[in-house]
Computed example of a mutant assay.
Amino acid sequence: MIYELNHVGGPVQDLDASLDFYTALGAEIVDHLFMAGPQVTRVHLQLGTGLIELLHANSPAPDATYGLNHVGFMTDNLDADYARLIEAGYAELSPPKVAGSGQGRLAFLADPNGHRVELLQRTEEFRVPPITTGETRRLAHIALDAPDLEAATTFYSEHLGLPHDSGRFTLNQDTLALSPTWPPSTTPVNHLALEVTTPRPDLHDPDGNRITFVPVS
């Protein structure tokens, strides 16, 4: 069973610049690990209750692309959930395997609009109690383009089991927002919306991810 919307993540070109950007917004580093096998540094940042996973390769491929490119979900039965989703017709990207960190196992598939969805099964917990000391109170939502909103709704609500309301899918503390009409983005994840005490104009992080701000509700 899929029980948690765990993180949004992707590769970064300059790890220090990305860390400076997000910590200036109030994020805290809750996990920092060098994975010797793939030669990748993994950092989890927490904004409010939401986790952002940054991946930095020591020797990236010449054609490497950067930016948030997947959403990760926790499951208590990776093999069964992955097999069920593939049998339902969703595209296989990477079958279940041991994670490069050695922490549990993972797999990737594509949602109906081609977004990368990671399934994770592990015992490690990186999330800490909600961070509410700064201006950013929470990661309000992770936004994905959904040209085929009906198919995406079926995937996230019926097959992943996320409760939903008007294009927003919430599991535990975090929310995925889908729309066919977001303004265009240069990264696979359309934008992150942060709930803040004082709204401000949109920003872009060092890899071009758009960050929007909404007032505390």
Rank of each mutant, 00 (worst) to 15 (best):
L144K: 05
V43C: 07
L15D: 00
G100E: 02
N69H: 10
G100W: 01
A177S: 14
M35K: 14
P188T: 09
N209I: 07
A152L: 05
M74Y: 09
G10W: 02
T187W: 10
P183W: 07
P180D: 03
I29M: 10
D165W: 12
A146E: 01
T154I: 15
G104Y: 02
P188R: 06
N190T: 15
V189S: 07
T49L: 13
A36K: 09
S101L: 03
P180A: 11
L194C: 08
S166Q: 15
H141A: 11
R138K: 15
G9E: 01
T136Y: 09
A99S: 15
L45T: 01
T154L: 14
Q103T: 01
D20S: 13
P180M: 07
T132D: 14
G26R: 04
E53G: 03
L55A: 11
T49D: 15
P199K: 05
L106D: 03
V8T: 10
S217M: 12
D81P: 04
F34K: 11
T23C: 10
E53D: 14
A64D: 00
A177W: 08
T153N: 13
P201Q: 07
S18Y: 03
Y3A: 09
A64R: 06
I29D: 03
P129I: 03
L85N: 00
P201W: 07
D31T: 08
L19W: 02
G10C: 04
P180I: 09
A143C: 11
G26Y: 08
G72A: 15
L176E: 06
M74S: 11
E53P: 00
E87A: 15
S157H: 15
N190F: 10
A146V: 02
A24S: 13
S157V: 05
Y90R: 02
P11I: 02
T153M: 08
T75D: 03
G161P: 05
T41N: 02
P96V: 03
P60N: 01
P215F: 10
V216D: 15
G37K: 14
S179Q: 06
K97E: 11
D14S: 09
F108Y: 12
A110M: 08
P201H: 08
L149I: 12
L19H: 04
N6A: 12
T132M: 09
P62N: 04
V117K: 03
F34E: 11
L194A: 07
D16Y: 10
P215K: 04
P62G: 06
Q103A: 11
A57H: 09
H44F: 15
D14P: 01
L144C: 03
D76M: 05
L162P: 06
G89Q: 08
S185I: 12
